[in-house]
Design a protein around this nucleic acid. Structure first.
Lengths: 193, 193, 193, 193
DNA sequence: GATGAATGAGCCTTCATTCAT
DNA sequence: AATGAATGAAGGCTCATTCAT
């Protein structure tokens, strides 16, 4: 399995650093190779083409979000608390890796439409988990049963995403995780009805 | 004033059509010139460079949103109603011009960071108007006085934006304006606390 | 018409020189552009891609052969004499432009199959004229009426081509045109039966 | 001797198949290795470089032509008959191995000049044998003593080669060996004078 | 003001060959 | 002897911008 070989991870990590530091359009394959400490050609032993590197960056890192979220859903806590932990997780992961935050919030959005659709496909599994929380919350009577799940999901994700992007654009000047409670309250109000 | 000359508008309108139909990365200056019915070089008599065209597209069109919003704010209605009208306006303007919707929600996001920062600057005046509604709502006691204005603004805009993008990505299959009430209720809950 | 502009001819002529002096695989577009005294990008205003330059080289020059041959066919002389003049013309044209001879006999044959098929298509009009001579010769009773036209054509062209290639490979050491009589006699014997 | 080891032949045969099926420019060393069932590196234990494989393909197969021709020359038959058998042999060998025919007539001609010169060197021994027939025919009074041996050789080989190439390009639609008599008669006329 | 021909910098990917195992 | 992962040089083409007319 290519993904288990050390060079695979090496290249993914190099890509995040290079993109964060140089910007999406200034991240040439040769730059990524140099940062990874491999030859240009080696990249193509692990990735079909440049787009594949970028999608893989997203896939690999999105897994962390999704895996954490899955665990949160399992826990024996209220849905409000699950929502809290989800926001907290999202903010914590991105706070702990500023390079990654820059890449996901700013740089990868410059990708062409084809790449962005592929990124969205990866994102979908994360949003489905969010739907799970919302549905459960409604069933449990914690959330308003008249809300539209899709719109609620868009509100939750849109708000988290917008908050994170603003934080990145402000060059991480303030502590993102500290905003968790406030964001949680806003969103909770939204879904509680 | 260059902006008042007919070719200025001609080029702006051509740019929206070309970008919507060809995608951001396939919208060469020569294509825009052809669509506008002018020579390539003529573009540079009205715009310093390509980036300037794109920023101007945003500026010109954003004015419509902002002007409408200013009028809404003036009205003698509750802040909840102002919020409703703002959402409705946002959805209505973009529903009435699918090209514009595609350009703002999908294509312009592929711009490089520098351009996106400039677009955000244009957006700021719109967000300041939104802040006005939120502040007034808090002062009037309509909205929860403990909410963080910035976060609330991010929730409102993030939700509207995410909702619109999803609608565009779904190829305008359903009626966006019809979602106004539901989105309004979600957001109102959020800010009412 | 692009073909009538001076730069079109300039690039064609440059291509012949560059290919003859550097070999097919060492004839980069940038080298041709430099030899032609234009920018790399200018090449693409006149030719769709590199292959198109090479096909055009062949087309432009093959026209000389064909035009001369057409005139020969018109003349009021015997078919044996027409055959003589055809060989002479072929040898004379290539003798007068060693670069062109090297390109057509050695370098262009390294082209990939797709390009060679296109070159063959250009060649076809020349071979059809040759067929005209052969058919007329048979009708006039000058040539053996039992010969197979296609095979006879292949003999005539194969012999001329092989003779020219050998001459080029021997670095034009001897006079090609001087071989006309001998080649003519050989081929005439072949078709006379 | 490397040539006697089984892998040597294995690689040569693999090369012919790969080149015939993929074309000269799409016949990477790795593809030949895969077809031969060996590792890429193993190729280099038997051949100095890629060019050496291709020359060897030609050498090995050309031996068949030459060996057959040597035997024909030995026979106690007229030179006209020897010429007939030579043509027949040429057509028969290539008819019996369509892969080989495609490789020698179309694909190897795309090789660079250096390789083609080496291939020509291999070919020379074959052409020397042809010269033997021509000289003997002249001495015996069968062929015209005034013909130029070199030109006659070029006519004979040029015609055979052109005929074969046309047959390959027509995707072996008709029977090549059936053309032997007609080609023989054309060429015999040529050299008989 | 308007034109459009000309410019030239910039980059992803392939593949023959090597060499540590 | 055999392997196959790793190497790294090399080039066709696009397109924003200029400037002579």
């Amino acid at each position: 399995m290519k993904k288990d070989k050390p060079k695979y991870k090496q290249i993914i990590d190099a890509a995040i650093i290079v993109i964060a530091e140089n910007g999406y359009h200034q991240s040439q394959v040769s730059k990524i190779a140099k940062q990874a400490g491999v030859a240009d050609g080696t990249i193509y032993l692990y990735f079909k083409n440049k787009e594949e590197i970028l999608v893989s960056v997203f896939e690999e890192k999105m897994e962390i979000f999704a895996d954490n979220l899955k665990e949160i859903i399992q826990q024996d806590i209220s849905c409000s608390e699950k929502l809290f932990k989800m926001i907290e997780n999202h903010f914590t992961v991105l706070s702990s890796d500023h390079h990654l935050a820059t890449v996901t919030q700013l740089e990868l959005r410059q990708a062409n439409l084809a790449l962005r659709l592929r990124i969205n496909a990866v994102l979908r599994s994360y949003l489905i988990l969010l739907d799970t929380i919302l549905k459960e919350g409604i069933e449990q009577g914690e959330f308003d049963h008249t809300i539209d799940i899709r719109l609620a999901r868009q509100m939750v994700f849109g708000t988290i995403d917008e908050t994170t992007t603003t934080w990145v654009m402000n060059e991480h000047k303030y502590n993102l995780v500290d905003l968790t409670s406030k964001v949680h309250r806003l969103l909770l109000n939204g879904v509680k009805g």
